[in-house]
Amino acid sequence: MAQHQVNYLKDGGLPVALTSIDKVVNWGRSNSIWALTYGLACCGIEMMASGASRYDFDRFGTIFRASPRQADVMIVAGTLTKKHAEFIRRLYDQMTEPKWVISMGSCANTGGMFNTYATVQGVDRVIPVDLYLPGCAPRPESLQYAVMLLQKKIRSEKAIKAQKPKRLM
């Protein structure tokens, strides 16, 4: 029996934290956003730099996965051509719910400077986008900020939603 008095309800003495289901689920989700590698063009280089040691996305729990089944967020980094549009849609459909999309850079947002016949004018014509990140190309700091904003968005969502898959239409 300890001689000193421990106030179990104060100072974290009791190994119990009270919270709500929403908060704890969203805490888990927002701090392990596994990203699908989707480097399509030069933005992909910035995305790779974000994942590498200097900017180190792993600190935020963002680990790049090569499989859509294991990914939570699709970072569309680069120019989406019309030939590739059906594949990005297929990979998006293969991701498990809940899933989010960051559209990284001008080309993914609006088609950017590629105002041509072969470029999709904004990736949101094909898949629903949660967060648009401007820049050409955005620096790794911008992508980190985008991921932090996405974390903020995830935290504000209801953890257990009615199972309604996100559809563009």
Binding site: K82, A85, Y117, A118
Partner: peptide, 16 residues
């Protein structure tokens, strides 16, 4: 340069 009607709707027709 910005594509004909087929090109403009290509990805929409193809996917949806």
């Amino acid at each position: 340069l910005q594509g004909d009607e087929f090109a403009a709707w290509y990805e929409v027709d193809r996917i949806f």
